[in-house]
Design a protein around this nucleic acid. Structure first.
Lengths: 367, 367
DNA sequence: TTGTATGCGTTATCAA
DNA sequence: TTGATAACGCATACAA
């Protein structure tokens, strides 16, 4: 506390001095306090302008006990789905005047915990975990009194709790989407249907279970199942070989990345899609509409989920109520990889996910 | 300052009290100050543990004049390239113990300025603008004394300044990459080469100019040129129609999104790639390796650029030196859409960009 | 309508 | 080795 590196930032006190008023008055004037006379208000504003005053939010936060910042933990920004969620979250936050701190935890439990701790240290006004592997209850414990949202949590407890999940959980209706995919394949005459799973976590199990039960309900044989590692999509040959040995006539993939890689790999094997096998993806990333053949997929409203996450947090901050749970509808987008729309037009690519913005009660079919 | 919502967070004072020491001692003990006796240190640590003490970074920042936070402005997280840059930036920041505030400015100048202001208000220790449209000098003015990095700035001044650009500018060697693409097409016997530009900003012009001069240098005819809006990739038909009316035999696209959409659109028009026209993209996004035909592209080290951005900021913060400029090499990845590697093996998809991590002096060819 | 004084939770200075 | 105390920059309760 002695070296004055001469470029100290101008502070409220400087503004006050220049305007010839007290710090309190300067503060109130800039805050738009109605009790301040127009004359002083403009004097102060001019002084602030002239000195290029920028408020110090650390100080303000300390005093006001709010940071106007939200924390977002996610697995990996490189993944188009997570990036989309992040984009929506940032959008929702920005609209409400909040800034976003993002931590990529790589699907690692310890990292997720560290991220939560970082957010608590920074006193973020709200915290969101997207696709987290952390136990929701554990997460709730760690965030203290800050409102918490969980978007598509990937923890086992979710498999046991069908439907919405607890407070503050935003989920897509994965089960319904997978069901629609199975029905679609069934309707196209496919009977030897397989689920190609990637990763070993809860959402994967959930989707597999949904596929199995849908196939059973349709009166089909039991679901075939393939399981590949998380990063298998980076090795299309391997992916295709896993499936082509005993080729089903329909494959529902864990996600679009995997499905697109499978398409690529199958082409290498000389397997024709959809003639030899129909392929369905999951997520509805934009590139699913640009593949050859174009990919039939269960589109989830990822951007909307992120946006809703942020909005819910903001609402919870304002109301001091816990944010509600929400189950968002998904949409089966039928394209070439499963034989096409059959008379209906196919949908094109869009900036969004292909899913409608407004929650709708049923699984939608078509584009 | 009177209502005690009983769940006040435990503060350092609480820890000190419980440990029976002064706040100063508690602070030093937790900071690992060597002058504190082992006995008190552990007493304090236990107290902190027992009370689940979490330091308040706002207070610390206020006092210490550093936030250990970095600000990142980018256009849109939905874009795979920007998301990749963000991922690299977050990675580099996290490795150095910094957290990242991200603002998506949508390529809008006013938003970018607002973002910079927000970062200054939050006293981020360093600021990075990725693909910003803001004038670099303007940006430097606005960040005050905080170190600033610019990753692939998209401002006209960059067209005029070949090579590196000023301090703190990280660029990929776009011009060289485009040149390599032109040579590649030329070598494959393509003569009627076109550039398909998207957007109206500087990087687009830069790439077009590079293509034109390379074609001229090769002794070819003058470069044909198509220009489509930023979001044209969401309308593949339109994109294809723009080109197919007077079809060139080689097209270099502004980016991979556009190239992939073009592939899709051309398929609709019955145009064969690469037989009728060779297509080259730019960026090296993972899905470029999964298209059908797989996309030849100029791969840029996007993840590395983000990571380098963060590292450079951290270095600048430590050294109080302005961060240096850096021009990163790109890599022409030859795949099917331009006729394939011709004897060389083609590369597969990888998590990264396909470009080498270490800067290398020349444009690389092949996978 | 404005000013005075205090405290938000830390860390650093100085003294013991 | 530790403690008292003063800031950091701001917003507010209370006085005037």
């Amino acid at each position: 506390m002695s070296e004055h590196p001469p470029n100290q930032r101008t502070t409220l006190a400087d503004v006050a001095t220049r305007a010839g008023v007290s710090r309190a008055t300067a503060s109130r004037a800039l805050a738009g306090d109605p009790r301040i006379s127009d004359a002083t208000r403009s004097t102060v504003r001019e002084a602030a302008e002239a000195l290029e005053y920028v408020p110090n939010l650390a100080a303000r936060s300390l005093r006001a006990r709010e940071t106007r910042a939200l924390g977002l933990v996610l697995a990996d920004l490189r993944d188009p789905v997570h990036a989309q969620v992040a984009a929506g979250f940032e959008l929702g936050a920005a609209q409400a005047g909040y800034t976003v701190i993002i931590v990529a935890a790589g699907g690692d439990l310890a990292e997720e915990r560290r991220a939560l701790k970082a957010f608590v240290e920074r006193s973020t006004d709200g915290i969101c975990v997207a696709s987290g592997v952390i136990d929701p209850d554990d997460a709730r414990d760690r965030v203290g009194s800050a409102p918490l949202m969980l978007i598509q949590p990937d923890h086992d407890s979710l498999v046991r709790v069908p439907g919405q999940g607890g407070d503050g959980v935003i989920r897509a209706d994965d089960a319904n989407g997978v069901r629609a995919a199975v029905w679609h394949l069934w309707e196209r005459g496919r009977r030897d249907i397989a689920y190609l799973g990637s990763g070993e976590r809860a959402t994967n199990h959930l989707r597999r279970l949904a596929a199995a039960s849908a196939l059973k309900a349709a009166g089909g044989p039991s679901l075939r199942s393939f399981q590949v590692p998380d990063d298998a999509w980076t090795r299309p040959h391997e992916l295709a070989r896993a499936v082509s040995g005993d080729l089903p006539d329909g494959v529902i993939c864990y996600d679009d990345k995997t499905a697109l890689a499978l398409l690529d790999g199958l082409r290498g094997e000389g397997v024709a899609v959809p003639q030899d096998v129909a392929v369905v993806g999951f997520d509805g990333i934009p590139f699913a509409a640009l593949s050859n053949p174009r990919l039939t997929t269960v589109a989830t409203p990822v951007l909307e989920m992120g946006e809703l996450g942020a909005r819910s947090l903001v609402a919870a901050i304002g109301s001091r109520q816990p944010p509600p749970a929400c189950l968002l509808p998904v949409e089966l987008v039928i394209r070439e990889s499963s034989g096409g729309a059959g008379g209906l037009r196919e949908d094109g690519v869009s900036q969004g996910t292909g899913a409608g913005r407004a929650p709708r009660p049923e699984v939608l079919v078509g584009g």
